Computed example of a mutant assay.
Amino acid sequence: MRIIRYLAISAMAGLVMIGFLGLTPTWADEGSGPIGIRLMDAPAVRRGDPRARIHIVDHLSPGATISRLLQVTSTSRRPQRVQLYPGAASVGRHRFISAPDRLGNELTEWVRFDRTSLTLPPRGRTTVKATIKVPRTAWRGERYGVLWAEAEPIGDTEETHRVGVRIYLDVGAGGEPPTDFRIEQLIALRSPTGRPEFRAVVHNSGQRAVDMSGTLRLTDGPGGASAGPFPVNHGISLPPGGRGRVVIPLASGLGDGPWQATLYLASGRTQRSADTTITFPKAGEAPVVKLTGILGTAVAVTPRNGALAAGGFVIVLMSGFALFRRLRTSR
């Protein structure tokens, strides 16, 4: 057991050393145009969940049924014909991805509208009901989809517009799986034009998808200055086990520091924070990365350091293997 523990610790240390890489996040927007759609209600147990006010976020047992009211509005000066239908979606590449056209999935087969088409008067609005009925034979797990409202073309134009409400539906017997995430890295950098920027690497450590939002506050700066709060500019959506970066652009005239940086992130009712002392690098210099785990030290990430980190990982594993052989020989 001691040998296995030594090797596990060695591997974890190596992974931390090369764990600085991330991808630029993207935030999905469920459509735009002359019509709008919004959720009108949410279950009582989720009244305090900001995500449940704009998306359908729920956990159901096999065989259960839920209904939700949605309001469809028009900004057109003409009567607007609207089609209603469910569409497939997924969470990947750090965003919520709605499928094109009317592509369906398992979840869309469970959805029914009380009416699939309607006509809105000029600048009018109406309420529709969507019902989701989960089969008794449904397997456990989270499904994703969108409830779409699509405006039919008016006049000679062939352009269509659609807007939608996301669905995050978890299915399984018993209680709801936990939602959780960790802030693993805090990154201070400057763009080529010299504008400061703050980033954070987030790991979805729970069992449900998360949508990141939040703010950054800077205090105890030069001369006791404070700045912010600065909102997260690029929120990200992460599936269970996923990692990604949130991006926070800052004021161009912000000084180098040092600053006391406090980052607040949330996905629904799940909130986490991290703080550290940072100094922004000069334009053209390597970003400064702070790990929020047990190492908790600042390092500059450069191409050379990246190569050293990868080499260090190999060295650590080789050291662990050598230790394993020595212990085995001594027995």
Rank of each mutant, 00 (worst) to 15 (best):
Y264C: 10
V128S: 03
G63N: 06
A130Y: 01
A52D: 02
A309P: 00
E109P: 00
Q207M: 12
R93M: 12
L186Y: 01
I315S: 06
V128L: 07
R208T: 11
Q185C: 02
L7R: 11
F96Y: 12
R190N: 07
D170T: 15
P229H: 10
D170Q: 12
G175N: 12
G141E: 03
V134Q: 03
T270A: 15
I278M: 15
S330W: 00
G141K: 04
A64Q: 15
V171S: 05
G164A: 13
R123H: 10
I187W: 02
G306M: 14
L120S: 02
A138T: 02
T329R: 15
R328E: 11
K129M: 13
Y264N: 15
T137K: 09
E109I: 00
A298S: 14
R269I: 14
G241L: 06
I66G: 03
R245H: 12
S273P: 01
R78P: 00
L15R: 03
A261I: 03
V82A: 07
T75C: 03
P122S: 09
A274G: 10
M17H: 00
W110V: 03
N233Y: 13
A266R: 15
R136F: 01
E109V: 00
A99N: 03
L7A: 10
A310S: 09
T24Q: 13
T302D: 06
L308N: 09
A138W: 01
L15V: 02
R272E: 13
V82K: 10
P287C: 11
G87Y: 01
R5A: 15
V82L: 08
T73N: 04
A188V: 09
A130P: 00
T75I: 09
V146Y: 02
